[in-house]
């Protein structure tokens, strides 16, 4: 980033190449939409480029990157939410919001959860479980799981203390466990994931 600050265009290309997949992966899980994830990722890189002259390496670059990404993803969700108010189709979404994991699986098979899950279904179960988390919990989980960020770095990204991150991740994992435990007990999800 310091090379980018000095006007090295090639360094910026390297930066985009190094972080684009990681960034889009997290944004895709946050926004559930590849196109929206790529749009936000582009905006993140654009903002970083524009802010390059004022860049001061006080924290990790990835912390700064995901902090911007989180803010833009929040804006994106707000805008999408406003649009949804107009286009909401009641037949596809009940008053309680997203369908729970059980409903999602019941859609796929009337035998669930007693039968074995295949990989695609296991993915769907875990994805649905992830979607039951609130936005902060979800991002904290994604950063910890995929980016292997420490609590301190997650705190810097979300502007939270280390203790708050500890509590946030704990609640998130309690929620995930509540969603996934029935399948883990059957052993079906563990086998599918393996």
């Amino acid at each position: 980033m310091l090379r980018v600050k000095e006007g090295d265009q090639e360094a910026f290309t390297q930066l985009v190449t190094a972080y684009q997949d990681r960034l889009v992966n997290v944004l895709h899980h946050l926004l559930n939409d590849q196109e929206a994830a790529e749009d936000v990722a582009q905006e993140v890189f654009l903002r970083i480029y524009r802010a390059r002259l004022g860049y001061v390496p006080t924290a990790k670059f990835s912390t700064w990157l995901f902090h911007i990404a989180n803010n833009l993803a929040n804006n994106q969700r707000r805008n999408k939410g406003r649009r949804k108010e107009v286009t909401l189709n009641m037949s596809e979404s009940g008053p309680l919001g997203p369908r729970p994991v059980e409903q999602l699986l019941a859609d796929k098979s009337g035998l669930m959860p007693t039968r074995q899950l295949d990989n695609a279904e296991a993915r769907a179960v875990v994805q649905a479980a992830l979607q039951t988390l609130n936005e902060r919990q979800k991002l904290a989980v994604l950063l910890h799981k995929f980016e292997e960020m420490s609590y301190a770095d997650i705190g810097a990204t979300l502007e939270l203390s280390g203790e708050a991150v500890k509590s946030l991740l704990s609640r998130a994992r309690e929620n995930l466990r509540a969603q996934l435990e029935p399948y883990m007990k059957q052993g079906s999800l563990n086998q599918a994931v393996r």
Partner: peptide
């Protein structure tokens, strides 16, 4: 620990082929 391992089933999303070029040209 097992719940956490389950997250390994989440798909990994990558950028589309034209993303890098589009991003750099947009800048």
């Amino acid at each position: 620990a097992r719940t956490w391992d389950m997250l390994g089933a989440l798909p990994t999303h990558k950028v589309s082929a034209e993303f890098t070029q589009k991003t750099l040209s947009m800048i």
